[in-house]
Amino acid sequence: MIVAVARRIALSLLTLVLLAIFVFVATEIMPGDALDVTLSADELAMIPPERLAQMKRELGLDRPAAERLVAFLAGTVQLDFGLTIISRTPAADIIAYPLRNSVLLAGAVLAAAIPLALALGVAAAYRYRRALDNAVSAGAIIGYSVPEFVIATVLVILFAVLWPLFPATITAATRDPAHVLLAAAPLPVATVLIGSIAYLARILRVGMIEALASDFVERLRLTGVPEWRVLLLHALPAGVIPSLTAMALYAASLVSGIVVVELVFAYPGLGQELVRAVTRREVHVIQAIALSSAVVVVGLNLVADLAILLLDPRTRR
């Protein structure tokens, strides 16, 4: 068990190092360095070579790539992602609160989505190929297919304009306490929640169908174990295990992936910051966001792996 846990932690750390190298290579070496990416085409065409060389020196871009990579990795370990090109602000300072806000939004979505999806997935699997299953499956396909900006707009019209229950746009400050942000965010949460429930219910349903059709469930039923015990205490853990990794990755994707929802509702999260950084061509902020997203993905994946290790003895070998 300890060896298996240690192996997974080591693998996660290795993955993070490789990802950091990839982010560095993608943004600083190919196809141009950070300055080339930041400057407009006109600037690159017009600035004399000696001035460009001087600017590169000022940003440390004249050093060998390997040396810069080591400095980048060392900085990353200390959460030092460098300064922004325009305002010379630490990139870590720029993303800290937006990252917290995105984690909050994703957390709120998952807190509601996981129990609801579990209930729907289990119910649909238990009523496999009956009306309830058909309704859940059809609803899940629709919920997963409708784009989030459409859901967001419909929710705004219904619950902010026609029936003004919730804010249509979020005016809370970036550094407001968590409860202030969450109180202002029912519509963004609901927007993401619909797609999340749809996605999670589908994968849970599949896992549960397999579990309920397995030999051990049949044996339990034949031995007279009550149906609710079969369903909740035996089939559910077995049905959830295959979905854990997918659920963890989905949760991680929420943190950095709900850009559209953040833009529609002006939610002060990582998505808005990423869009701003890309349009401003702030390479260090993009690196910081990419790496923090990678940490969330790898971290949640590790949590899922450890949970599987705990729940499924076969994986400990």
């Binding site: 902010a160 304009v161 003004p164 919730f166 804010p167 249509a168 509702f265 002006a266």
Partner: peptide, 8 residues
């Protein structure tokens, strides 16, 4: 977003 906020 501003006009949505006004309408709401």
């Amino acid at each position: 977003s501003a006009i949505n906020g006004f309408r709401a």
